Amino acid sequence: MEPSEVMRVNRALNKMSKLYRAAKARKLAALGLHPGQDVLLWLLAQERDGMTVSELAARLGVEPPTATRSLARLESGGWFRREPVPTDRRQVRIVVTAAGRELVPDIERAWAELAEYAVGGVSPEHREIAISALEQANDRLRTLVGEGPLTEE
């Protein structure tokens, strides 16, 4: 890659990351959430019976203490409850409440609006090229940081 292209790639990715996070933060603030909490709540809502903190951490790709801190910040919203795991008194299951489930369509709507705003004006062909390029870049970066490519997100 030419040095000028290297600078363009770095500048574009850094700027997009910052702008997307800021735009997402604004959308989520209207729901009473911060970036990252949307994904956590959405993942929890996918499991009717909930999941343990360890399972949630694994799905998020973080360590259990990080998931625990994220849950603590979310807890005041009443979007989930903790239930004991009958077979292991050291564990609890995190189960989304009705209030949490009601928030999921709003989260998905915020994601859709962000995606539309970011690339909705791009032709379908160019959008597919951009998304494929970003997915390949993510896979390569995961390998670089030792996570390996994901098969499902």
Rank of each mutant, 00 (worst) to 15 (best):
H34R: 13
A130S: 05
P105E: 04
A22D: 02
R48N: 12
I94F: 11
R21Y: 09
S17W: 00
K18E: 10
E147R: 13
R73A: 10
E102G: 00
D88C: 11
D49Q: 04
A67I: 11
D38S: 10
E47L: 06
W79T: 01
W111E: 03
I131D: 06
G36R: 06
A58T: 07
V145T: 15
N14G: 13
N138Q: 11
A67M: 12
Q37G: 15
G148E: 09
P84D: 02
L41N: 05
P105I: 02
V6Q: 05
K15D: 05
L33Q: 06
R89N: 07
Y20C: 12
D106A: 14
R142F: 05
G146S: 02
V39S: 02
K24G: 00
K15E: 09
L141C: 07
R82Y: 00
A99V: 09
E125P: 09
S54R: 15
P3W: 07
W42Y: 13
E63H: 13
K15G: 05
D106R: 12
A72V: 08
A72N: 10
G50P: 05
D106Q: 14
W111R: 01
R109F: 07
V6K: 13
G121N: 02
D38K: 03
R26K: 13
P149E: 11
Q37N: 02
G77W: 01
V145D: 10
R73V: 02
A23I: 08
V62N: 14
V39A: 04
A115I: 05
G100K: 06
L19N: 06
V6T: 12
L56P: 01
A112D: 14
A58S: 03
E55D: 12
S17Y: 04
N10L: 14
L44Y: 09
R26S: 11
G61R: 15
G78Q: 15
P65N: 05
